[in-house]
Design a protein around this nucleic acid. Structure first.
Lengths: 117, 117
DNA sequence: GACATCGGTAAGTGATAACTTACCGATGTC
DNA sequence: GACATCGGTAAGTTATCACTTACCGATGTC
């Protein structure tokens, strides 16, 4: 229950600007919490909390390194997000084509009784 | 200024579960506001507000149809999101590989002076 | 062992945004 | 024109969540 690795979690996690910022920082390589916080306009505890969310969404992983704790990106969550987005994309394209199609088929001159239900 | 079509907006827009629900409904084809609301546990005005956000993020478009207003998915915003995610994905993979690499290279037995700064 | 650094957690606060009901203009039907 | 339907907007409430400071345990250094 605590491990679902859903795209939902990834969407929610990356729905916050600060969290996206944190995530993007990690694309350069693993960083400690303090380093991350130094690059952001928020406090270190705030970063810790964001990292927890990202971790739960399987977007990052961490490992101890002495007193520090190094965080790094993790493909798992992103993969789920990518797959979901791919589906969205395909469906969107077909829905878009279909809509454009019916739009074209439908008479453009105003039809009085036109209320497709 | 009101039209940027950023991936940021798309991330923020799809960061809300209800909005994702709305967006997914539209994958089946264009729908009126009332129809959408009927499928959701929220009121119609709430749906209207969500649709506005989705519209600003270029994720949906609308057109009048008599008294109704039909909303449909729009590839534009999704495209921006997809591109951004693609970048994230590539960077994540290389960062991941790099991290795994340095992890492997680094001696696994505890080194005393190990504090890479 | 004393001391410093790092980071997670607790507790509290403030802003935001998701929701509600009420209202109103626009369109279509009779 | 009267009436109904649909949907956007205004205004207000509430819950959520991002953030703060304070505290504490863990690890490393001397």
């Amino acid at each position: 229950m605590t491990s679902a690795a859903t795209a939902e979690q990834a969407f929610d996690a990356l729905g916050d600007p600060t969290r996206r910022h944190v995530f993007r920082l990690l694309r350069d390589g693993e960083r400690s919490v303090g380093e991350i916080a130094a690059h952001l306009p928020v406090s270190r505890p705030a970063v810790s909390q964001h990292l927890r969310v990202l971790k739960e969404a399987k977007l990052v992983s961490d490992r101890p390194d002495g007193v520090r704790r190094l965080y790094s990106v993790r493909p798992t969550g992103l993969e789920a997000l990518r797959a979901e987005l791919e589906t969205m994309w395909d469906d969107a394209l077909s829905a878009f084509a279909e809509a454009a199609d019916s739009e074209r088929t439908r008479d453009h001159r105003r039809q009085p009784g036109r209320s497709n239900r």
